[in-house]
Each structure stands twice: as C-alpha cells, then as structure tokens.
Design a protein around this nucleic acid. Structure first.
Length: 241
DNA sequence: CCAGACGTTGTT
DNA sequence: GTCTGG
DNA sequence: CCAGACGTTGTT
DNA sequence: GTCTGG
C-alpha cells in the first residue's frame, strides 16, 4: 500500500537525482502529506515526437495521483486507482494500456503506513509510521501514467489533457513488514532505465523483475512512529515521543 | 456473442 | 457509520 | 490513505 | 479500449 507520502524536492533537484534531460515547469510545493488526487512529480522517458526511432529523453513533470484510463468519461473514478497491485496489474483493463508503454517513477522522500492494533472494532488504534531509505535519501516508486481528457460534444472546443499516474504495490518485505502487509514497489537505480524505456513492452515478466529487485530497497528501509497526519509540514515526519 | 465493468486496502 | 475530498 | 463532513429552508 | 461473466 501507499496512500500518503512526502516529497520536498524541487523539479530541478529531482532532475539531477534521476538523471533527467528536461524538467517541466511544475509548481509542486514541498509536501509531507501528499494524498491521492493531488499533483505529484513523476519521471518519464519519452521518444522524440517526430522520430520514434530516436533516443528517448528523460523528463520530470507533474501528474494527478490516481490513474484515469483514456476511455474513462469522468476524471473522478468511482473506484480507487492510486495503487495498482503488481500481482494483477497486467490483467486490469484500467492499467494494461499504461503497463505496456507508459511506465513512470514517482519520486518520494518517504511514505507513511498505519500500524493497526485491534480488530477493527471499538478500541482499534492506528499509528502512522514514516518509512524512508537512509542510504539513498530518496525513493523511486514504480509507477504508470496515462493521459486523459474529458469528452466534449461535437463542435465544442476540446478539453485539456490531464496527466494521471499510479504506483505499483507488492507484498511487504523487510522492516516495514512488521507493521503492514503491503508496500509500494521501489526501484533500485540499476532498473530505472529498463522500467522507464518506452521501447520495452511492459508485461508481467517486467513487473516480476522489478518486484524482485525492489527487495534490496525494502531490506534497508527505516521506520519510526509519527504523530497523526494533520495539516502539512516537516513536523509530520518527526519521530513520536 | 454482448453487456457491463473497469479497484485497493483492510477487515471479517 | 459511511461517504468523499485531498 | 486518512480526516472531516455528514442538511434544509429561509432570512440576512 | 479491453476484459469477463453470463
């Protein structure tokens, strides 16, 4: 799972870290409390417009967190699409198109998971934990993106395109597994290129590969409890106590 | 074949 | 309790 | 994912 | 658009 995370880096900083060739002018204020449907930074590789055989270039841009497939008629989905299960992403019509050739990285400083104690009934306590990579200081969530625009009546001016994105999830592993059974798929540097390559047709084998590679990241994560996530600011990731 | 859905997490 | 906006 | 709202009529 | 349950 991952339904809340932090990103405080500018587009320029992300461009340097992810070895991007271009950075779109994106207004993304630092946030320690990013929620689904908000704008988030994403990293994509795209082919030159007029030369599909040319070299891809790497771009940092912004997308709405919750993937909307091209055929959807509304921006707001009646079902959640901010996560995509790695186990089934290849067979879900909402995600299949994006898996084939629209893969992305969603950068993060760290993310949150809630440790639930109790049976869900009265007395259940949920404690948020902040989870991050002390080695790299940055996480690269494996994501997918999709362009969408609202349909319009014949003869009307077209609606603007909206870039949307989601991130893959997997069974938890490593330290974070002690508090929760799902985790985002996080990419080590050595698989960024293959995951982002738009000339590689994404399939379940590719997903299986990155899920496997994500274990080295999961194994080195650190986590600590934090106060309830209200508002926004650096205080949200301060260890509780 | 068409009609209708198209999703995740967590909890039971 | 349940829905929804962020 | 959680946090916060959850409603109407009529009057100002 | 694509998948699947009937």
């Amino acid at each position: 799972m991952c339904g809340r995370y932090a990103n405080t880096k500018s587009g320029e900083e992300l461009g340097r870290y992810f070895e991007a060739d271009e950075v779109d002018e994106v207004r993304l204020p630092p946030s320690w409390n990013i929620a689904p449907t908000q704008q988030v930074p994403i990293v994509v590789d795209r082919l030159p417009k007029d030369d599909p055989d040319g070299m891809p270039s790497r771009l940092v841009t912004a997308a709405r967190w919750s993937l909307v497939p091209r055929w959807a008629t509304e921006l707001a989905s009646p079902y959640p699409t901010f996560n995509a299960r790695s186990e089934t992403v290849h067979e879900k019509s909402t995600f299949t198109g994006a898996l084939v050739r629209s893969r992305a990285i969603l950068p993060a400083d760290g993310y949150y998971e809630w440790h639930t104690v109790g049976d869900g009934a009265k007395g259940t306590v949920k404690t948020p934990h902040y989870i991050h990579d002390p080695v790299e200081g940055e996480l690269a969530f494996a994501g997918l993106y999709s362009w969408w625009r609202a349909p319009v009546a014949e003869g009307q001016p077209p609606s603007p395109w909206v870039l949307t994105a989601t991130m893959l999830t997997r069974a938890a592993h490593g330290p974070a597994a002690s508090i929760h059974d799902r985790a985002p798929v996080m990419l080590p540097r050595e698989v960024w290129d293959e995951w982002l390559d738009p000339t590689v047709e994404g399939d379940q084998d590719l997903v299986t590969m990155v899920v496997h590679e994500s274990e080295q990241v999961l194994e080195r994560l650190e986590l600590h409890p934090v106060a309830p996530l209200k508002g926004d600011g650096p205080e949200l990731i301060v260890p509780l106590g």
